[in-house]
Design a protein around this nucleic acid. Structure first.
Length: 199
DNA sequence: CAGAAGATCTTCT
DNA sequence: GAAGATCTTCTGT
């Protein structure tokens, strides 16, 4: 079933990031269903986290949507080439987020191959935050999309993931974040080949 | 297989 | 004007 708003509006993004491992992310864009199982996430918190775009209450055109109540999409362009997809969590004004970094493709694989310009299913189809958005057709136009509607949403398919099968480690690409680089807020499904290659 | 470098453009200072 | 929650390609071993 589709994940309800209450799931996103809880106060601890780290817990939400961990619980999203094993859940499913889908898009239905141009009438085509694509999606897969989430195998890698990262948490970003509005307090005590220098890596978070909303750190210290920073409020700009880009971060504006982070201050909405949990359950909407935060998409943005990184390095001039890739779109990253986050879900906003917590209540209004508490700008937390979870970045989706890795997906095991399950639905709409032919369409995902087309969007990625690949002819065979391989790891770089959806293993990586900038790749899975391409495969799912997510763009910066989806900034603020309601995650309980029928364009982009997540599902709980009652697949339990054992706690010990989820690896926690430091987040990627945030060297600017001072001591917060070492927070173990990246979560990966143990043994999955669909986690991002980044260390 | 590892490491380096290049691509490319929005956002914030 | 600089840097960035990335990925691909190219080089050398």
């Amino acid at each position: 079933m589709k994940i309800p708003l209450e799931f996103y509006r809880r106060s601890n993004p780290v817990e939400i990031a961990r619980e999203l491992i094993g859940k499913y992310l889908f898009t239905q864009i141009d009438g085509v269903l694509t999606g897969g199982r989430i195998v890698e996430t990262e948490a970003y918190a509005h307090i005590n986290d220098q890596a978070c775009h909303s750190h210290l209450g920073r409020y700009t055109a880009r971060t504006k949507v982070m201050y909405e109540p949990g359950g909407v999409a935060y998409t943005y362009l990184i390095y001039g080439r890739y779109v990253l997809f986050n879900i906003i969590t917590n209540e209004a004004g508490k700008a937390d987020a979870v970045l989706i970094r890795g997906l095991e493709p399950t639905d709409g694989i032919p369409e995902m191959l087309l969007r990625r310009g690949l002819s065979t299913v391989q790891r770089n189809l959806t293993a990586g935050p900038g790749l899975l958005t391409q495969a799912l057709g997510i763009t910066t136009a989806h900034y603020g999309t309601d995650l309980t509607a029928d364009l982009i949403w997540m599902e709980d398919r009652s697949e339990t993931v054992a706690f010990e099968d989820i690896i926690a480690s430091p987040r990627v690409g945030i060297d600017y974040a001072g001591e917060d680089v070492s927070l173990p807020w990246r979560f990966r499904l143990k043994g999955s080949k669909w986690v991002s290659p980044a260390r």
